[in-house]
């Protein structure tokens, strides 16, 4: 179940971004540590969208910021186009990091309230002295009229429009990878749909590679080519969205899917697939971190951490007792 391992990674030359064994910890006072991300691996090929899904505290946002080295992770390797990011310092880091950009959840605190939209979007080109000709183009690309929007400040815009400004700021430096950290979670459904299709459109137009993080499985599935499920700082399952929804193998994936109301999926009620509440990331369970809530947990799950392994053509799972892809009904242990 929720475990580590890197069997699901592709060959380094096939991918644009390769993250291996990422570890992020924070001090939690009295010498204890929050194990936010504990040995997470994933990769993204050029032009691909990787979705990362999980509930609060699973470490998905922490992992996203670790990719940007903000702050730098405790351990692991992050390779962008073959360049190792984790060891970089100073100028080299600054130069390399700009190839990755980020979009955040909170449209309000993503934008400096005291700056004009034009200054916000033009910040990147100004830092690098590359000229501001792309600024208007980006504003137009995200659906804002440069003539009327440029001189306004963020508080004059709605949440959806702020998110568009954030996207323009992220894309203006022509990044290779854009990390979207819950970009639509704070938005109404109609605006959410607008932003999702905008991202799809911009991805095609500018050949972007996306890492899309959200807690809503349906949203993640809609935009992603592959979906990674995380739980309490570990990876659970990696598969294409369609496979994940049709043949979920990890008990936690199944519980997540079953918890979605009116999903139309053939799954038992969620209260039979998951129980209780997530344990504290300060003192995570031994072995498989999901075992405390898993109906199929066995002694082995406490003793031994499951590693990611392949169970289908495009499906990897970290579980000692995965739901066999062809089977229906309760998992055999």
């Amino acid at each position: 179940m929720a475990g580590s391992g890197s069997a699901h990674l592709r060959a380094p030359e096939e991918v644009l971004l390769r993250v291996e064994d990422l570890v992020v910890e924070f001090p939690a006072g009295r010498g204890r540590r929050v194990h936010a991300v504990s040995g997470v691996s994933f990769d993204v090929a050029r032009g691909e969208t990787l979705g990362i899904v999980g509930e609060s505290g699973c470490g998905k946002s922490t992992a996203a910021r670790a990719l940007m080295q903000l702050p730098a992770p405790l351990g692991g390797s992050i390779r962008l186009d073959g360049v190792e990011l984790t060891g970089l310092r100073g100028e080299t880091l600054r130069r390399t990091r700009r190839r990755l950009q980020m979009i955040f959840q909170d449209p309000i605190s993503s934008l400096n309230p005291r700056r004009r939209v034009r200054d916000i979007v033009a910040e990147g080109p100004r830092v690098w002295g590359t000229g501001e000709d792309r600024v208007d183009e980006m504003l137009e690309a995200v659906g804002l009229d440069p003539a009327t929007a440029s001189d306004r400040r963020p508080h004059e815009f709605s949440g959806g429009q702020c998110q568009r400004i954030s996207i323009a700021r992220a894309l203006v430096l022509d990044p290779e990878v854009v990390i979207c950290d819950e970009p639509v979670s704070a938005l109404d459904v109609s605006v959410q749909a607008q932003i999702l299709s905008l991202l799809e459109e911009l991805k095609k137009r500018y050949g972007l590679t996306l890492v899309f993080i959200a807690h809503d499985l349906a949203v993640v599935k809609n935009i992603s080519d592959r979906v990674l499920v995380m739980y309490l700082g570990k990876t659970c399952e990696l598969a294409s969205g369609d496979t994940l929804v049709r043949r979920p193998a990890h008990p936690y994936t199944r519980a997540l899917l079953a918890s979605v109301p009116r999903s139309g999926l053939d799954l038992p009620p969620a209260d039979r697939l998951i129980s209780g509440e997530p344990p504290s990331p300060v003192t995570p369970p031994s072995g498989c971190r999901f075992r405390t809530r898993c109906p199929a947990a066995a002694p082995r799950c406490a003793a031994e951490e499951p590693l990611m392994r392949r169970i289908g053509p495009d499906q990897w799972v970290a579980c000692h007792h995965p739901q066999a892809p062809t089977q229906q009904g309760p998992p055999v242990s």
């Binding site: 940007m68 130069r95 990091r97 950009q101 980020m102 605190s109 400096n112 916000i120 910040e123 700021r169």
Partner: peptide, 26 residues
């Protein structure tokens, strides 16, 4: 700690520029 400061660092702004452009006005 706001996201716009993280965004500025992601864009490659140096500390001095962030202090001047992002923090000081606020």
């Amino acid at each position: 700690g706001r996201e716009f400061v993280i965004a500025a660092r992601a864009l490659g702004a140096r500390d001095r520029r962030i202090l001047l452009r992002e923090i000081t006005p606020n």
